[in-house]
Amino acid sequence: MQKKRMKMSIILSLFAAISLVLGACGNANDENTEDTQNEDKGNAAGTENTENMEGMNHSKMNMSGSGEVPEGLKVAENPTYEVGSQAIIQESHMPGMKGAKATIVGAYDTTVYTVSYTPTTGGERVENHKWVIHEELQNVDKSPLEPGTEVTINADHMEGMDGATAEIDSAEETTIYMVDFTPTTGGAEVKNHQWVTESELSPAK
């Protein structure tokens, strides 16, 4: 009887040890699966952020300008925001722009385009850049251009833009504005910024 009890005790001990080993392996697998899932989520979030930022890097934008405008640009007769008035910028072409109070320096009627182009200085292609106006395109007639048209840019809003070959992504006839504003993130006042469209402004309170 004593030998049987010893055998049973050994067998039970073995079962207990096996159960512990299997449980540990199961937990390890669960942890590995969870880590993998978290890593996948992190990668997905990173990809999403990258996609959302694609074509929106304006770190090389010339925020201030000389105030000169292209030849032939028509001054708006009755703009919603008159020269000298103030408005709130509702678009973030660059950090510190959205929510900034702007002073209207100039108002003009034209066709504005979003364009995609590869900078003449090299680097990644810029997608859906806002904005280039009709008068900043080389060798075009007065008629608005259709999306998909290939053009040459004659403006230096960003490094490597002047002389670049671009494709028009969208076109809109509207009033565009040149503005002065101080970024909400702080720093020096931006002077003669080109361009902000009428739909990107709201009345200043």
Rank of each mutant, 00 (worst) to 15 (best):
P147I: 00
V115A: 06
G26P: 00
Q138N: 00
N62Y: 09
T197Q: 04
E39P: 02
T47M: 10
M56H: 12
Y177M: 02
T174M: 01
N43R: 14
D169Q: 09
M53I: 10
N154C: 08
N43T: 09
N192D: 09
A100D: 02
E54H: 02
V115L: 05
T121L: 08
T120Q: 01
I18A: 09
G123Q: 11
V190P: 07
G163M: 12
E77W: 06
A17N: 07
T103V: 14
K130I: 08
G65S: 11
T103C: 13
L20S: 14
I168E: 05
G23R: 01
V151N: 10
H157T: 04
M56V: 06
V112K: 08
E189Q: 08
S59H: 06
L137W: 10
G26C: 15
T33M: 14
N154S: 14
K60Q: 12
V196R: 08
A44I: 12
K142Y: 01
L20H: 06
L73G: 08
P183K: 03
K4P: 00
E31W: 14
Q194L: 14
E124L: 10
Q194F: 12
V196K: 06
V151A: 14
Y81M: 01
V126G: 03
K101P: 05
A100H: 01
N139V: 11
F15T: 05
H193W: 12
T149Y: 06
S59K: 06
E189W: 03
P144L: 10
T36W: 03
P79D: 07
T149L: 10
Q2R: 11
T184P: 13
M178L: 05
G23L: 09
A24L: 15
G122C: 10
E48M: 12
I18W: 07
T121W: 12
P203H: 01
E48P: 00
T149R: 10
G187L: 08
T182W: 09
N78C: 02
A155P: 03
E189L: 02
A166H: 14
Q194Y: 11
L145T: 04
